[in-house]
């Protein structure tokens, strides 16, 4: 087991091991493994990619190719709270751009960035299918509807 990476604790490594163990024999399971591994570690440091490549017996270049292809996977550390503002058409029409603008202005992060204190990371995401609540925003899995540029900062205050 590799244990030379600062970002990944011993417990994380053993969880990653069991993820690999669970799916190693299933053809096509790479994306599932990556999703579950990201749930454990939070993002993909180089050591994790190489470890999964070895464990799944898939070239590391292919693993990186897959990680960098899908927007679910992150190559940079995330914040403690992940803000996902829906940028689907309905939300866009109803002001998602302004919502993102306000968050960016307040916390000094652009889309895809994380605040220095790792409190928030901000993403504009594809339609979350909650168009009835447009503009919608998902924070750590909680859906917030009818968000406006004015109300968004108040919502964020609750997350530290």
């Amino acid at each position: 087991m590799s244990c030379c990476s600062e970002e990944i604790s011993q417990e994380m490594w053993s969880e990653v091991d069991s993820v690999i163990e669970r799916h190693r024999e299933t053809p096509g399971a790479l994306i599932t493994v990556l999703r579950e591994a990201q749930d454990v570690v939070g993002w993909f440091p180089q050591a994790l990619i190489e470890y999964i490549a070895k464990g799944m017996n898939i070239p590391a270049s292919d693993v990186f190719g897959v990680v960098s292809f899908y927007s679910l996977f992150s190559l940079t550390p995330k914040g403690r709270n992940s803000i996902k503002v829906c940028t689907g058409t309905a939300c866009y029409v109803k002001g998602a751009r302004e919502v993102i603008g306000r968050i960016s202005g307040e916390y000094g992060i652009a889309e895809g960035e994380t605040t220095e204190d790792r409190r928030f990371d901000l993403e504009g995401v594809r339609c979350v299918g909650a168009c009835g609540l447009a503009p919608a925003m998902v924070i750590n899995g909680d859906v917030h509807g009818d968000v406006t540029a004015d109300s968004v900062l108040k919502i964020l205050e609750k997350y530290s």
């Binding site: 053809p27 096509g28 399971a29 790479l30 994306i31 599932t32 990556l34 999703r35 898939i58 292919d62 190719g65 897959v66 292809f69 899908y70 927007s71 679910l72 996977f73 995401v125 594809r126």
Partner: peptide
């Protein structure tokens, strides 16, 4: 099979590549 965030995977051949664990 859970996708991982790629619109193009709605295209049939890309979707199948994705189930095979590859880039869509």
């Amino acid at each position: 099979y859970q996708g991982a965030g790629a619109f193009v995977c709605g295209e049939e051949t890309a979707l199948m590549r994705s189930i095979e664990g590859k880039r869509g």
